[in-house]
Design a protein around this nucleic acid. Structure first.
Lengths: 344, 344
DNA sequence: CTGAAAGCGCTTACAG
DNA sequence: CTGAAAGCGCTTACAG
């Protein structure tokens, strides 16, 4: 913002010989303006290079035309997990087509997500908010629901399902299907590296996994279930852990390609044959799963769409007061070499 | 923004028995407020749960406290090139520590970057702008310079160097050093896949490459220089092209890991031994270069820092009117197996 | 150190 | 279909 002597509605009004009210009305496409007046004003606006001041509009109209996006606090996620850039791309695209701007949360160390949300709202900077992940006992969901501020969630709400707009995959089914598939190809000891406890998506996937084991008449073995952070370290660490199990699992589901990729390296180095000794399946279907030496079977969750439709939902929440709407984005299990060989 | 009956300066003023002016002054930390008054007002603000309306502040003060970031129009970039998410992460971090919010350009198909810039400025939504890449004849740089609007550039300005704040690697030197290194390990025919013509970074790297060839007494062979889009297709296509050259090059520089990764697959499938027959070096040092079957030598350009310091520069441009400042972010050539074997 | 007043550039009932 | 007036919630010379 610079002290350029902006041309204002007043200038336009003067030159078009109408009142500022009228200028304002043609700006906002008010229906009851005569075609003649509209044209004249439009022409003057063009001649003067006039462009409405968004800030002034916001103050007067109580609408900002911008959407706030809360990025995960832990910046590692932003870096490693391809979900975030992809979903963000979907959000940007969606926002563009709905004529919204996107304001990103500045992730400061000290500030909790809730504080960021509150600041966005209290400073009146956004019309609505997108939460990019769903935690168990998420205080942001709680808060936003309680003050009835328009928001949408990527993921499944931990509570208040009837009030929270959200877009998600059916992660329960995805894990169920994947586990069943591994069982069908003859695997008996199926391990799972499931992501962070405390994330709804982790809960859902574990549930689906357990259910599938049960229906396949396979025992659930707690020692085959891993949860934790999703960085490189973890991939290696768990890989080594699994290597040391006796008997080793003959299948492994990992909820992110990157980790799967890392773990795969450990197994290969140790002379484990994939998929013969160990079938591996993962999530996100990122570039890594395709480019891997042994291409990885992976669940494509359509991150872009998750982002894109979260905007759609949010726009409806803002404009029509929609609440509790739920959108399921289909996933797809892309089968590749890491699960396609014969079992030993 | 919701029609919550916000508490305003007026409410605070009333309860604290001061004028709104005074409240405003304690909000903005005006020095000449008595400690006593300050404390009383602060207490009332806290009691009332008051939080200043950012929009109103903006309108009155002509400062928005937000930075506009222009993302590349072609969304493929955002997806594939790890530079963008990384640099964006740096920007977000930098913005947070400088107390700015980040507004993202909504990349619509029809709109040029220049139009987005103009809209940001004319609607008074941002105090400054970050351009995430530098094109030859970039009209945004031209425009922003001409109206003297604060901005900073990631990359090298194509012109008006004395006016444009920018942060960049020394891409000339990086390409020069990498080429020289390949020559030093005995390579005689060094090919280059250089990225898009029209990007300043591509120009710089080609220059450095040529200079190094010359100083190493190697001929510059036009048929060994490739430019083009950076998607998967390109990697495969050029890989096949190179395979069909006679004689084949014995070294290849590629300005992105992903493409290098793709090309590598082509070569491996064709039975080319890396690095024996063909040494490969690339840029960005992404996760891919490490995880590759044959780990790739790659230039780490420190994308995060590029983003982070672009904010630093921009803040100085806004607050101190700084112009033409230049910041060089060091790069690092990370040597790995793809260049470390012996030549044939 | 503090207050009264004007103003930032729009929008929106209200009235005609 | 259009205008006059008040107001959105702050900030900032100006004056004291």
């Amino acid at each position: 913002m610079i002290k350029t002597n902006q041309t204002t509605v007043k200038d336009v009004a003067l030159k078009a010989k109408v009142s500022p009210s009228t200028v304002s009305r043609v700006i906002s496409n008010h229906p009851k303006i005569s075609e003649e007046t509209r044209k004249r004003v439009l022409k003057v606006m063009d001649d003067l290079g006039y462009y409405p001041n968004a800030i002034a509009r916001s103050l007067a109209s109580k609408k900002t035309g911008t959407l706030g996006v809360i990025l995960p606090n832990r910046s590692e996620d932003l870096l490693l997990n391809p979900f975030f850039p992809e979903a963000l791309r979907g959000i940007i695209k969606g926002a563009a087509s709905a004529s919204y701007d996107v304001l990103l949360s500045s992730s400061t160390e000290g500030k909790s997500e809730l504080e960021i949300v509150k600041t966005f709202i209290r400073s009146s900077k956004v019309d609505g908010i997108i939460l990019m992940s769903s935690k168990v006992n998420d205080e942001c969901q709680e808060y936003l629901s309680s003050i009835e501020f328009p928001f949408s969630l990527i993921g499944s709400p931990y509570d208040h399902k009837e009030k929270v707009n959200h877009v998600d995959n059916d992660n329960y089914m995805a894990a169920y299907e994947l586990t069943t598939y591994l069982s069908m190809i003859g695997r008996k000891r199926i391990a799972l590296i499931a992501g962070e406890v405390g994330q709804m998506v982790t809960m859902k996937r574990i549930e689906g996994y357990k259910k599938a084991l049960q229906e396949s008449n396979l025992p659930f073995d707690e020692t085959l279930l891993y949860t934790g952070k999703f960085d490189e370290e973890t991939g290696y660490t768990y890989g080594v852990d699994i290597l040391n199990l006796t008997p080793m699992p003959d299948a492994l589901i990992i909820t992110d390609d990157l980790i799967a990729f890392g773990a795969t390296k450990v197994f290969k180095t140790a002379g484990i044959s994939i998929p013969k000794d160990l079938a591996i399946a993962s999530f996100n279907n990122s570039i890594l799963s395709r480019y891997s030496d042994i291409p990885l079977t992976s669940v494509d969750i359509n991150s872009f769409d998750l982002g894109y439709y979260s905007v759609d939902l949010l726009a409806k929440a803002i404009n029509e007061g929609v609440k509790g709407r739920k959108l399921i984005i289909p996933y797809e299990i892309v089968k590749r070499q890491s699960t396609e060989g014969e079992a030993k």
